[in-house]
């Protein structure tokens, strides 16, 4: 039943995404602009680590895409609450968990699709990276979007208005981006900043994807990155499930 219901909810929301193709492409615009106008600035700089500057930047942009996209996913459900769609579904016998998972998997699909577009653009700009590494990168994007979208949906179920949602998410995503070294490796900065950034779960994911992009798969970064990504996913989906099970205040 969970599988049936999740597929059903997933299908409904995937069709919704397909109906708004413009929004689907628009999502890649921000990271694409970074790629076009920020990427070339880095090509000659000593960024530490191996590989080209593209192998450092693109992993960061991929996770940035997931960070900003998935964190705001909850907006959708605030609209749906207003339309009565959420309660209409909740009075049916549909699995509560499926109402979350179907939506969250749609987010993951959309962002992995956008990530593929971004990587293709990056290849055109000069990125060269091993295929397994690129695929591992998509895996991390998927886990990150599942985590953040779950948390975002959970928050959105709790707040009544977009005004109560937007500022909170904004206040969390920007520091998350700056402190995790998405744009430039944190190791370039002062020691205190590097230490501080290790408090940010996203930092471990970026380090892991950067390793993957230079073909190094058996590293400490990869281990920590995977552990943090899986841990974050489990935690977030648990929080989301709990909220979706009991919501209704």
């Amino acid at each position: 039943m969970l599988l049936h219901d999740t597929a059903l909810v997933y299908g409904r929301y995937l069709r919704q995404s397909l109906r708004s193709r413009f929004a689907l492409l628009f999502g890649v615009l921000m990271p694409l602009l970074y790629l076009l106008f920020f990427g070339p600035l880095l090509t000659g700089l000593p960024l530490g680590g191996r590989g080209s500057s593209w192998q450092v930047l693109v992993p960061g942009l991929l996770l940035q895409l997931g960070l900003f996209g998935a964190s705001f996913a909850g907006f959708m459900i605030i609209l749906e609450k207003g339309q009565g769609v959420v309660e209409r579904m909740r009075v049916t016998p549909v699995s509560r968990l499926a109402l979350l998972l179907g939506r969250v998997l749609r987010e993951a699909t959309v962002f992995v699709f956008q990530a593929v577009l971004l990587v293709l653009a990056a290849v055109a700009m000069g990125l060269r990276a091993p295929l397994p590494g690129v695929l591992i990168g998509f895996g991390f994007v998927a886990l990150l979007t599942v985590s953040l979208a779950s948390l975002s949906y959970a928050l959105a179920m709790k707040v009544a208005t977009p005004q109560g949602f937007g500022p909170v998410v904004n206040a969390l995503t920007l520091p998350a981006m700056l402190l995790s070294g998405l744009m430039l490796p944190m190791t370039l900065g002062p020691r205190w900043l590097d230490v501080l950034s290790h408090l940010m779960p996203l930092r471990y994911l970026v380090d892991a994807v950067r390793d993957a992009y230079v073909g190094r798969y058996a590293t400490a970064h990869m281990l920590y990155g995977s552990l943090v990504a899986v841990g974050l996913t489990v935690l977030s989906v648990t929080v989301g499930t709990r909220v979706f099970r009991t919501a209704g205040a």
Partner: peptide, 28 residues
Amino acid sequence: CGYVAQSGGVDPQITVREELVTQGRLYR
């Protein structure tokens, strides 16, 4: 039981047919 909220409960972007069919599927 069936429930009709005061605000209703359909997505304005979706067709009547799709909403009715989805609802049937939600009832398994």
